[in-house]
């Protein structure tokens, strides 16, 4: 049987969810026998392959136009999209900037910070343009599964992937793995 292809990527997040995923420890070896990790921010190949993958996982919130592109590309190239972590499922810490507004948040971060001298808000054309409102991934593309948690427990990743491999679709995590923080 061909291996199931999995791709991951991150948006406006802290990489903590990916770290937690790696915390499944030696079970990743067992998992690697069944799945093929095609691409991720922590492998050489960064983008999901054009021919597509079965499972796509996204960490982080939608904060700028670049995040929107990445989310859309992942959605197009995967069958099952999983929002991973509190930022991807709820907006999380990045969404706290909605309380003051993007312009004020950028000004505070790059110009008004006490340690900043001659501050400048980055505006390189290579960068994504910050959105007015930070949102969860499901507000931009259709999401099939949510794994909340900050970060989600390693066991939650393992549970969801083994369930999917067994041909079952977990609707909601079991209580011991379901956490908002």
């Amino acid at each position: 049987m061909a291996k199931v292809k999995i791709a991951t990527d991150w948006l406006g997040g802290c990489a903590g969810c990916h770290m937690s995923f790696l915390d499944i420890d030696e079970r990743i070896v067992k998992l690697a026998e069944l799945v093929d990790f095609t691409s991720s921010p922590i492998t050489d190949l960064k983008h999901p392959p054009k021919e597509g993958v079965t499972v796509g996982m996204l960490e982080g919130a939608i904060c700028n136009t670049h995040n929107v592109e990445v989310a859309r590309q992942m959605r197009e190239r995967c069958d099952i999209l999983i929002a991973v972590g509190d930022c991807a499922t709820f907006g999380g810490v990045p969404a706290m900037r909605n309380i003051v507004g993007t312009a004020a948040a950028l000004r505070r971060a790059y110009i008004e910070t006490e340690s900043t001298v001659d501050g400048l808000i980055p505006d390189s054309p290579e960068l994504g343009v910050p959105l007015e409102t930070v949102v969860a991934v499901d507000k931009v593309v259709k999401v099939d599964l949510f794994i909340p948690g900050c970060p989600p427990r390693a066991d939650a990743f393992y549970y969801v992937l083994t369930e999917l491999l067994a041909g079952r679709t977990p609707v909601v995590l079991p209580p011991e793995l379901f956490t908002y923080d």
Partner: peptide, 21 residues
Amino acid sequence: LQDMGYRFGVDHWAFSTYTKN
């Protein structure tokens, strides 16, 4: 409220949320 969220499996927010402080 959190306990209720867990009990009813609210694993994402159906509506847009906090923008007003």
